[in-house]
Design a protein around this nucleic acid. Structure first.
Length: 357
DNA sequence: AAGCCGGGGAC
DNA sequence: GTCCCAGGCTT
């Protein structure tokens, strides 16, 4: 039985109602066609902080391009990033390939079923570890994500802040107690499916919920008030001048971003942090930063791009250079028609409509 | 514990 | 505008 401040629940009846609903209503998703641990792994990484409908086309393309662990391990990172382009959180792609290489070199290409070995892989945290172990290997391990915390915060009327680490551990212990050991894969997926389809953040469909009679929050009429979660901070606004620099051969200058941090190893048009530089020193800064002499032209447009923790305010200008040689390793001349072979952040993809002919 | 790390869709 | 999504890593 459930302890602490949570309410009691009839475990067998809850499992039966939840799993019965799941088997009758689960979505036909591409990563549910088999239990290939590699495909389960790829899907779970893509699904981190990302909706199912967004992931589906990426998953198809990714598996077609990298069908096996060995294929992904042998790929160029730029090709992996290109397949991830637009999905966001690009460290997921870099970590996944890093981990896949580790699986090839240390585990003969087989995804570890040992929890400690699996959890030690880059990008495999507590949730993903539990998801792979339960879904691919049928082990009764908890896989606690946002859905699971929302569902059980309501069913068990847990009123602790789900942003806290200790609250997540509390839910893991609840799942260990409640999990259906004959089919932990279906149990974990059923809770998440319920969270996605019925027990939604706003306006949950309690009237058609298969576990309504088990739900303490519904009984108390406070399901809309759970889960409790502290609010995120507001984003900082950072203004940039974007320079669409073109040479006499009608090629554009793009720059490879740093190998760590925001949008790592993706490509972009030149970005000038105008607040730090100031308009008067703009061309001088470009020369000191890149050894590049440019003439700023006319303004072509503006964009606002929102990240989870900051906002880019982008003013886009065309610019020209007469240099033939690029003095900086980060920079590259590329014809307009070849830009699509490089991975770009979405914000810079949106700038391409301002390029000339 | 808090900050960093994308992008999109629902409301 | 707000929230949050099948989270993890770093400090």
């Amino acid at each position: 039985m459930i302890k602490k401040n949570a309410q009691y629940i009839d475990k067998g009846s809850f499992q039966q109602d939840l799993l019965g609903w799941y088997h009758a209503n689960k979505r036909d998703l591409p990563w549910r066609k088999d239990q290939d641990p590699y495909k389960v792994w790829v899907s779970e990484i893509m699904l981190q902080q990302t909706k199912v409908d967004t992931v589906i086309p990426y998953f198809y393309r990714f598996i077609e391009k990298f069908p096996t662990i060995h294929a992904l391990a042998a790929a160029e990172q730029q090709d992996v990033l290109k397949a991830w382009e637009g999905l966001g959180y690009y460290s997921r792609a870099r970590n996944l390939q890093n981990a896949v290489k580790e699986v090839v070199s240390s585990y003969g290409g087989e995804v570890p079923r040992n929890p400690d070995e699996l959890g030690a892989l880059k990008g495999v945290g507590p949730y993903t570890k539990g998801a792979i172990l339960s879904i691919a290997y049928n082990q009764p391990e908890p896989a606690v994500d946002g859905n699971v915390m929302r569902v059980f915060s309501r069913v068990l009327k847990v009123e602790e802040d789900i942003a806290l680490q200790k609250t997540k551990k509390l839910f893991e212990s609840h799942v260990r107690e409640l999990i259906y050991e004959d089919d932990p894969s279906s149990f974990n997926q059923a809770v998440m499916e319920l969270g996605a389809l019925i027990c939604t953040p706003k306006s949950p469909s309690c009237m058609i919920c298969p576990v309504q009679i088990h739900c303490s929050a519904f009984k108390a009429g406070i399901q809309e008030d759970l889960p409790v979660k502290t609010k995120a901070k507001k984003q900082r606004i950072i203004p940039y001048i974007i320079l669409l620099v073109r040479n006499s051969k009608n090629e554009y200058i793009i720059e490879k971003r740093a190998e760590n941090g925001l949008l790592a190893n993706l490509w972009q048009f030149l970005m000038v942090p105008i607040n730090e530089i100031g308009w008067d020193h703009l061309e001088n800064w470009v020369y000191s930063e890149y050894g590049l002499k440019v003439k700023i032209g006319t303004k072509k447009g503006k964009l606002k791009h929102v990240f989870s923790h900051l906002i880019w305010q982008l003013d886009i200008y065309e610019a020209a250079t007469e240099q033939e040689q690029l003095p900086d390793d980060r920079l590259l001349f590329v014809e307009k028609g070849n830009l699509e072979s490089f991975p770009f952040p979405v914000s810079h993809q949106k700038m391409m409509k301002y390029l000339g002919e």
